[in-house]
Design a protein around this nucleic acid. Structure first.
Lengths: 247, 247
DNA sequence: AGCGATTTGTCCGTATGTATT
DNA sequence: TAATACATACGGACAAATCGC
């Protein structure tokens, strides 16, 4: 058992037992270093493990807080890759309608999880399925300005925009939060989608975060009812026993 | 862009492009260190990223070989237990409207995944949130006749119906397939839900299967738009190395 | 079997940058 | 501005695993 693994296990137990409550701060790196008599490198190695499991959230200048108690029982697992579950079929062509820089006001910030005043690049595009005349949906994508260069890749791409951002900028999505509500198309939306005002539609909002819980991207999609259904398959994960520890 | 991220991206591209073939070795840490003029720490940081994606496999004394060219099938993991993700909110009261035995015709069989001619028990109920007058949604539940005795437990229960079936009959759900479409309420539905015809609503169909892929239960829910939103949180699972095999 | 060379794994110390208060 | 705390990066040292002689 390495020191880092040992420390990670210890902290995990403390979090699971509630000794460090959700929302509370855990000791600073310097303090853990002293308390367990290890190097800072080892502390960070342990914390990295907890971050990757989503148990803690570290912020420079603030500290490290507990984000979730370890899920104890049964997990669900999406059955496929991120694409399969989240996208509707891979083969949809993208048609770029507009791109513009926007500054998030209160409403937008709340909707996509940004800070008010944050500058974002908004891309408006239509999704088309092969051999279908009408667009399957209309999507607004909000990107960070430093990721603006993926826009040129979108129309020819055969993969989701989020993958383009990941690959091109070396970031990695750790978490996706999704909200689906029913709405009906207003006149402007119906015109873009070549549908009729009042038609029911799925309103899908997704926010993509990295391991440090920073917002990397957000999408707002509008899908008229007859052209789209949102399918998910969950599979209960077998509870897997960890090998007995050598205390 | 950090040096480690940069190096990781470079190596990823080389692997994806086939410059380093699957099974072939990539340069040693010492060589990468020299070639990119970075510290070994940085090299290992980059390699760790590739390991966590399952792209490479490092072994002491041997070297590091490419394991997969593909973007490792990143799985998603629901963040909570089955209840937390699938249910909306915690405490919703159930109010039983009707129960009847139906024989699945073609349409129903297709919708809920049963065989045509199969006999099913249909329960109709309204979901109410505490301290709200209007029902949050209307749900039809299709049960196998041999599970009929859970009906009496529903109204007082503090857990989902699927859990009641599991506990009372010793079965276990292994898979849930869910479909969400947007629709608008017709007159009859609006009357039941005390809403107005034409209002948009989420139409949620779920089918529950056991490990042998047998249909255990199906639900069809109708949720008026302002009363319900469907929220999901996915977390990407890190690639985890299996312990050395017991060949 | 033994030994040394190679390569990754673990661990330590230190310095500097960046975000937040 | 100053202090705090995490992020990134550099360096060195030794251990453990593997391979070839």
């Amino acid at each position: 058992m390495t020191k880092a693994v040992n420390l990670a296990r210890h902290l995990t137990e403390q979090i699971e037992s509630g000794h460090y409550a959700v929302g509370a701060a855990i000791p600073t790196e310097a303090e853990l270093q002293q308390r367990f008599d290890v190097s800072r490198h080892t502390v960070r190695e342990a914390l990295r493990e907890l971050k990757s499991r989503g148990l803690i959230l570290a912020r420079a200048g603030v500290g490290t807080v507990v984000r979730a108690r370890a899920p104890a029982t049964s997990f669900m697992q999406g059955m496929g890759t991120l694409e399969e579950v989240i996208q509707f079929g891979e083969a949809t062509r993208m048609k770029l309608l507009a791109r513009e820089t926007v500054v998030a006001d209160e409403a937008l910030a709340g909707q996509v999880g940004a800070r008010p005043g944050q500058e974002l690049l908004r891309i408006s595009l239509l999704r088309h399925r092969p051999r279908e005349a009408l667009p399957a949906g209309w999507v607004l994508i909000y990107l960070r300005p430093e990721h603006a260069d993926v826009v040129g890749l979108i129309e020819g791409a055969r993969e989701p925009v989020v993958r383009l951002v990941e690959r091109r900028h070396g970031v990695r999505i750790a978490e996706v939060v999704q909200q689906i509500v029913a709405s009906s198309l207003d006149a402007a939306q119906a015109r873009v989608l070549r549908s009729r005002a009042g038609k029911p539609a799925l309103h899908v909002t997704r926010r993509y975060f990295d391991a440090q819980d920073r917002l990397l991207m957000a999408t707002v999609g509008l899908y008229p009812s007859e052209r789209f259904s949102h399918n998910t398959c969950f599979r209960i994960q077998e509870h897997r026993e960890r090998p007995k520890g050598t205390a």
